[in-house]
Design a protein around this nucleic acid. Sequence first.
DNA 1: CTGAACAATTGGTCGGACCATCTGGGCCCG
DNA 2: CGGGCCCAGATGGTCCGACCAATTGTTCAG
Lengths: 247, 247
Amino acid sequence: MSDQRLYHSVAARIEKLIEDGSYPPGSRLPAERELAAQFGVSRVAIREAEIALQTLGRIRIKTGSGAYVLDGANGKDEQLPDVSAFELTEARALFESEAAALAAAQIDDETLAELDRYVEIMANTDGHDAAGEKADHDFHRTIAGASGNAAITYVIETLWKLRDELEPVKAVYESVCSEDVGARATEHSEILEALRARNPSAARTAMRNHFTRLLKAMLDETEQRELEELRRKTSQSRERYLKSVAI
Amino acid sequence: MSDQRLYHSVAARIEKLIEDGSYPPGSRLPAERELAAQFGVSRVAIREAEIALQTLGRIRIKTGSGAYVLDGANGKDEQLPDVSAFELTEARALFESEAAALAAAQIDDETLAELDRYVEIMANTDGHDAAGEKADHDFHRTIAGASGNAAITYVIETLWKLRDELEPVKAVYESVCSEDVGARATEHSEILEALRARNPSAARTAMRNHFTRLLKAMLDETEQRELEELRRKTSQSRERYLKSVAI
DNA sequence: CTGAACAATTGGTCGGACCATCTGGGCCCG
DNA sequence: CGGGCCCAGATGGTCCGACCAATTGTTCAG
């Protein structure tokens, strides 16, 4: 349990005290000397632990006054929200299609060539390939970047991160992406052509179509899965029923 | 420049050495005793700085071996992007208007009443008031939430955070928001009425107008500021010129 | 009752000391 | 000559005691 570093375990103990409510946000922690005595460690260890906690934004140390517990919300590094794959896709449909429209208005030939390469890669890989996955990401990222708006790029990148880091969402995406590779290629080509034509409206539509298809595929997939789940449960209960009547 | 805490400035100096390329990722930092002598501080200060850097994920300390620079990518986890106030506002205009459109389609009376309260608060406070500021945030947050899509809510909240945490952006927003409080109130009312009418298209337009006005105000404000800056520089150079000819 | 000076508390920094661990190189054995 | 073992030096880990500086609560003079 001890993380080798003494200050680590001390920090953990202090954090626990905070979590327990012994020291609610805004309250003052005991003095360093006091904590040192209480924990049976040196003042240096306490100090190091408090520096780590301060760096993490859990407490605030005021010279000559004491260490104060900050509002927990600041501390815990922005937990990811509870977002379903459908919500994510809907959001992406909305935002990325707008980004595509903006991009169409000002994209340059070099960027178009880059997108060509990504489409090429995706055409030559199948669903589960990591390279294809990366090309997909790059394709969307590049279009977002071509919007010329860093905030939009940031948002789209943030959503992509959600997709990768939320396990349930990731699972849905993977199962959906692995099939219908052909559709993906076609749609990406259509988006690319709309961009090449510098047609914002067409780009928006093409991007929206892409996500709409994805959303539908997800719904189908989910429905399918739920059906199987239902069948499985049914057969289970049937077995149990048969067993019970057999007794 | 010194952040009061010695270990802070020491950490900054070490970080600078890393940034400068003196210690590329994977390389070992000088020994604590050595750095202490080099910086003219005690070993404790070095140690505290390294603990802070380790907590931030910039370095890895290995007992009996040394402190190693980690790959920068891991360390700076999601640093805020370099976004201008204009970009942010453009992005918000796009995203929040879509959120408003979605919200209009399914908002309930209770939420409308909540929005009423926020508008009321904003009407009774002036630009610099914290309560008005909060009501503004709550107003937008609530509409985002009414979209029924957690991903969209998350994105809008993320953008709001950018607004609050990027100093230059914050400055622009504050200077713009403090004036034209009347316009803000009017626009928010219009948004609210469109929502109350359950008219997605009107809600989208109203929200977009709100941000368009904001964007214009920002442009004006910035232009104004740049004019002043120019005037200041001009008068400076004029002084210098006059001085030089006086010699 | 008010305000200024004081004293206790508390964090900030230092130097030195000792221990545990790791690393590299030399030594011994095969 | 080569490989594995072992030890000494280097390095981080922890502690102690001391002193400084900022803060804060108290006390006392006006």
